[in-house]
Design a binder for these strands. Structure first.
Length: 750
RNA sequence: GCACGCUUAGCUCAGUUGGUUAGAGCACCUCGUUUACACCGAGGGGGUCGGGGGUUCGAAUCCCUCAGCGUGCACCA
């Protein structure tokens, strides 16, 4: 017997060695288990971790679930691929590096310049990448590293430019002046989903506006208000006609206001009359559009008031508010003030106060029909005109994508119903450039003189990088904006499999894309259902005319015992690496999987992990006992037919258990399967079967059968345990003299 | 405001389609243990399954309702 077994199990010594053995042996690559491309496939893309730093507990939980899925598929003989990668996470990464530079060197990105700044970000991203990959391996993740991808590498950039071009050509990407969420702190626009709301107690002010009283929580936006709006059916204001002009005294002197009647006004709210600020409010913008009204900018991109504010120009809006209220009070225009609770919008990443602004940006049109390219989606015919929104709904409604747990389908639909055009351009530097080129002169001034080249009269959208116009050779300049990071992650399931290249195999051998797409399953956190899952469905629907995956498995967040999110600032973060160091990867994995139902948040604390370290030790010791008694090679294998009834009963019971576990695994109930095998091993196998056999061996009653029974049962259990606790099971499997590694051993139940 | 989820032993959670005395881990109590394991074994205490109502032969499980907690979306000046 191996000396190693005489000591307690040492994960630190074992895990690195075993992982190297697997990786170098090529066992993470499809077909390592003997399966061929004609066999049933299993494919899954790893949700690429952001290159913003380190792995946290949420990643560890995700890696565990996905590795369990993958190892299970591999052992069941499927042609198995789990594909790794990392995400450049545009805003998140850029703002992290900006923060660091500001802290250390007191510089901002403009001080460094675009080129130098990007160098810094890339260096940071590279370092984060290495840390993350290393940590991912420590968890035991059986990812096919030969196919590793990055959302910002060459191959993925090509996919992004191609996707952009195809969507632009179909009229689904357009540039337009719209109200967008402007983050003055990050100096960029962000999408609706990147806005987080926070309750704030404020004052609600009533002002005299000519014959009317208007209410507002944001007096500092009111300078340019020259339209006063009311409901056409409001009897109180029946004497005023639409379009009527009235003169009145306002903040900076007399103005002429115009009456507008619009049905969107809520007669019950406030006085039923409001003035509008179209440049800085979505609802106001819509009213202005309907009646073709002027729109004036009040606040600049740094959150300061423009000259229109007169004496208040240059002030930050928060400073201006009290001063303005004071001025109106002095002028006798201030009515009552009431306390008021409303939501203020902040940027998720920078915490900047969002200021809606009208800006020219790039958008994806979600309500514009386009001809669908295939007949792969139930309920949508080839060539049928359909919108992205409808596609996104149909694939889930029609059951072509199955969401686990299924109640998230409702959340998903709810979100799609409220979906507006997706703003995809960002004014940050780190990310995929918008693949659009303009004549240099056009950028500098809109008066283009004497140019008659049709090609570059407008923006040129191009997959190839351009510096001059292909026709007239005039110099071109690329759009300075970058794309929302979710634009590139939306392509993830197929950009990682070679798209847009190799859509069709040239000579018989199928491409990765053909073999593995749509992927079998997407496993990710419910917190990015909209950000990511929905965007992948959108992209895949348009570009491939297909779904990106058949099943979505959503896991919850990992929290601490007090139900708090794990975070460094709260000081309750558990570092997965420390946890592995202390208890081993196997124990960590078990603690992250057991007691966690899909879609529910789970909790983790050191004692829970410790409990599974004890389990690892139990496995180790039980195995030692079995091997100690397996010293006679003439015994051979356990034979069911010649075994005593009690042993056959034991085997039958075990088969029943294994079948149940298999069904649980197939139905993604990993927490249940894990608990069952845990319980069986400890309280049936160790406490009863081993004790029983120990007696028999001591008394010489059917001793040889008892010994082979133990060996047989142990090996079967190692297989069932392997997806959960890959390291210790592989180690024992090897010590038991098996040549072929456990990672590719066949699952006990077909 | 709309939607979704949660509420089961001191703590953290299971309980798959309603079916025998409601389960696990940790914690607690008693006893035991020199050859697989004290990172152990045997046993035990502890729950009116958030409240109320209903369907059913039977409900933690299905329906209604109320409450508390959490999350998402929307948001009106």
């Amino acid at each position: 017997m191996d000396e190693k077994l005489l000591k307690p199990y040492d994960p630190g010594e074992t895990e690195g060695r075993i992982y190297r053995q697997w990786e170098e042996g090529g066992f993470f690559t499809p077909g390592s288990n003997g399966a061929t491309p004609t066999d049933e496939k299993f494919s899954m893309a790893l949700p690429p971790p952001n290159v913003t730093g380190e792995l946290h507990m949420g990643h560890a939980a995700m890696l565990t679930i996905e590795d369990i899925m993958t190892r299970f598929a591999r052992m069941r003989g499927k042609y198995t691929l789990w594909l790794p990668g990392t995400d450049h996470a545009a805003i998140a990464t850029q703002s992290k590096v900006e923060k660091e530079i500001r802290k250390k060197e007191k510089l901002n990105r403009h001080d460094l310049g675009r080129e130098e700044f990007l160098k810094r970000v890339n260096a940071f991203a590279q370092e984060s990448h290495n840390t993350i990959i290393n940590q991912t391996k420590k968890m035991g993740s059986s990812l096919d590293w030969t196919r590793e991808a990055f959302t910002l590498d060459e191959q993925r950039s090509l996919a992004v430019r191609t996707a952009f071009k195809q969507m632009y050509d179909a009229g689904l990407i357009y540039r337009g002046h719209r109200i967008v969420n402007w983050d003055p702190k990050g100096q960029t626009t962000i999408s609706d989903d990147e806005v987080v709301y926070e309750e704030e107690k404020a004052n609600f002010y009533y002002f005299k506006y000519g014959p009317f009283t208007i209410g507002t929580a944001r007096p500092e936006t009111k300078f340019g208000d020259k339209y006063v709006v009311m409901h056409p059916g409001d009897k109180r204001y029946a004497e005023y006609k639409h379009g009527q002009k009235i003169d009145l005294e306002w903040i900076n002197g007399p103005i002429t206001a115009t009456i507008i009647k619009d049905e969107s006004i809520d007669m019950e709210f406030g006085t039923g009359v409001m003035t509008i600020t179209p440049w800085h409010s979505n609802a106001d913008f819509a009213i202005a559009e309907r009646h073709n009204l002027d729109k004036e900018q009040i606040i600049d991109k740094y959150g300061k008031l423009l000259p229109i504010a007169g004496e208040f120009a240059g002030l930050k809006i928060t400073e201006a508010r009290p001063k303005l209220v004071e001025k109106l009070r002095k002028k006798g225009l201030l009515g009552k003030e009431e306390p008021y609770t409303h939501n203020i919008a902040r940027a998720e990443r920078t915490n900047g106060l969002i200021e809606p602004q009208i800006m020219q940006q790039w958008f994806v049109a979600v309500e514009k029909p386009f001809p669908f390219s295939t007949d792969k989606i139930k309920g949508i015919g080839k060539g049928q005109m359909i919108t992205l929104k409808e596609v996104m709904k149909k694939v889930v409604d029609g059951g072509q994508i199955n969401i686990i747990p299924d109640h998230f389908a409702k959340t998903y639909h709810h979100w799609i119903d409220n979906l507006h055009d997706w703003c995809i351009s960002r004014q940050i530097w780190y990310g995929h450039g918008v693949p659009v080129y303009y004549r240099k002169s056009e950028i500098q001034s809109s008066n283009v003189k004497g140019q008659d080249c049709k090609k570059c009269a407008g923006p040129i959208v191009s997959i190839e990088k351009l510096s001059t116009c292909p026709d007239c050779k005039q110099e071109l300049e690329q759009d300075p904006d970058t794309l929302d990071t979710w634009f590139s992650s939306g392509l993830w399931t197929f950009s990682t499999l070679g798209w847009p290249h190799s859509v069709k195999a040239s000579r018989g051998t199928p491409t990765d894309l053909e073999l593995f797409h749509p992927t079998t399953i997407l496993e990710t956190g419910y917190d990015i259902l909209f950000f990511w899952v929905a965007r992948m469905i959108l992209m895949s629907g348009f570009l491939l005319g297909d779904v990106p995956f058949r099943t979505v498995y959503l896991h919850g967040l990992v929290r601490d015992q007090k139900n708090r999110k794990l975070s460094k600032s709260l000081g309750n973060a558990i570092d997965p690496l420390e946890m592995i160091e202390q208890y081993g990867a196997d124990a960590s994995r078990m603690s992250l999987i057991i007691g966690t139902a899909p879609g529910n948040d789970s909790k983790i604390w050191p004692d829970k992990i410790k409990a599974y370290k004890h389990f690892a030790n139990k496995i180790w010791n039980a195995s030692r006992f079995v091997m100690e008694n397996d010293d006679d090679e003439r015994l051979g294998d356990f034979e069911y037919d010649s075994a005593p009834t009690e042993d056959r009963k034991t085997i039958d019971d075990f088969k029943e258990l294994a079948t149940g576990i298999t069904v649980d695994m197939e139905n993604h109930r990993f927490y249940l399967a894990g608990e069952k095998i845990y319980h069986y091993f400890w309280h049936t196998f160790a406490d009863i079967i081993i004790e029983n056999c120990k007696q028999r061996i001591k008394e010489g009653r059917d001793a040889p059968t008892a010994k082979t029974l133990l060996v047989h049962l142990l090996k079967q259990q190692l297989k069932l345990l392997h997806p959960f606790m890959p390291f210790i099971t592989e180690e024992i499997w090897g010590l038991m003299g098996e040549d072929r590694p456990l990672i590719i051993a066949p699952w006990p139940i077909k």
